[in-house]
């Protein structure tokens, strides 16, 4: 969807900024908000660009830099940690050859360590874009990554 179409759905009030940013980002293939987007939002809501950047840089789900097609977020909080999330993360590092915050050269995957996904009852957990995967084992992770790669081919 074009940015103008997205903007026109919202009243010209700055309280909708976060909702607007989330929608623009989710319509972007690379999960980010570009400087052109920021300029358009600034004009539409009549707020300074610095205010938009301030919001974008505050919230971890918003990004001003392009990411991979699949953003893999692995939970690393205590309930997952004591259920061996480290082996999950290491498996991903091993398979993707990237570390926390990095993107694969083919722009397919971005790997991130994230905060609690609220799935502690099925720890360890990770999220790929909006899809949550739970009760993970290195084997399960291997299959998930392979499936995602296959989808692309």
């Amino acid at each position: 969807m074009k940015i103008k179409e997205i903007l026109s759905k919202y009243p010209k009030e700055s309280e909708y900024l976060i909702e607007i940013l989330l929608e623009i980002q989710s319509s972007s293939k690379n999960h980010y908000i570009s400087s052109e987007d920021v300029e358009q939002i600034s004009k539409y809501l009549d707020i300074p660009e610095s205010q938009i950047c301030s919001v974008t840089s505050f919230y971890t789900l918003l990004s001003m830099n392009p990411k991979g097609r699949y953003v893999i977020q692995v939970c690393h909080d205590v309930p997952c940690f004591v259920n061996d999330t480290t082996s999950i993360y290491e498996k991903l590092v091993d398979m993707l050859a990237i570390e926390d915050g990095e993107t694969t050269e083919d722009n397919l995957f971005t790997l991130e360590i994230t905060e609690c996904l609220g799935c502690c009852n099925e720890a360890p957990a990770m999220r790929v874009n909006d899809q949550v995967y739970t009760s993970l084992t290195p084997k399960k992770v291997e299959k998930i990554v392979k499936d995602l790669r296959g989808e692309e081919k």
């Binding site: 400087s35 920021v38 707020i47 300074p48 660009e49 610095s50 205010q51 938009i52 950047c53 301030s54 840089s57 505050f58 001003m64």
Partner: peptide, 25 residues
């Protein structure tokens, strides 16, 4: 900058220990 002068050149970027006061980007 923001309230008295309505300019908003400077704002808070990032958070926690990485928080900085700078112009956009």
């Amino acid at each position: 900058c923001k309230n008295v002068q309505s300019m908003g050149v400077l704002d808070v970027m990032g958070r926690s220990k990485d928080m900085k006061i700078t112009p956009a980007y």
